[in-house]
Amino acid sequence: MTADDVAVDQRVSPLELWRAEFKALPAGVRLRELAFLTQLSLRLVPESPAVAAVSEALGVALPLEPCSSAVAGEVTVLWLGPDEWLVMTPTGDGETERNLRAAVQGHGAVIDVSGQRTTVSVSGPRARDLLAHGCSIDLHPRVNHAGSCVQTHLAKAGVAIWTRDDSGTDFWVVVRTSFADYLARWLVDACVPHRQDPQWQ
């Protein structure tokens, strides 16, 4: 085993103790922690000459519309603010970070924030109903489409919610690591009254 393998083997994700609870939920919702996604904070003014190079490095045009996102292969780019994006990728080889840093050079910043947040996949036919217990944003497919990314509160935790389909059944909830346990507890508890609900089975 190389040092890298040892390191990977020893990682602990914020919600690993919630796996069993997530599995026991009614079938209408599926919760899964997408642990260990590499996350990079990309800071750049949108007028920057580096935008083109950054887009090239990402493999997709940097999304400039508020509350939008872009996907290139396994790389996801979430718009978080006028000069802030969260770049997420499951690969941990540092290549995306190196390429981005080279592209940004001097015009902005690329910061490894992989440990700052974790990601919870919330999916299933009742996913939207579950989120509606604590999120005031309208996630109905009529108004909320695949690719939207909103920063809001889910219960009392600040989160980014990324919509992944056009039927309101697939979301990523990105939450600060220290709030993850609270949010998991809240999500699991929100399902309790629906245990006997036939629509949630």
Binding site: H133, K156, D181, Y182, R185, A190
Partner: peptide
């Protein structure tokens, strides 16, 4: 509502909590 007991307010945990 559910803002009572353990869910009254977020409890933020550090990596060594467990």
């Amino acid at each position: 509502g559910r803002n009572r007991g353990q869910l009254l307010d977020p409890v933020r945990l550090t990596p060594t909590h467990v």
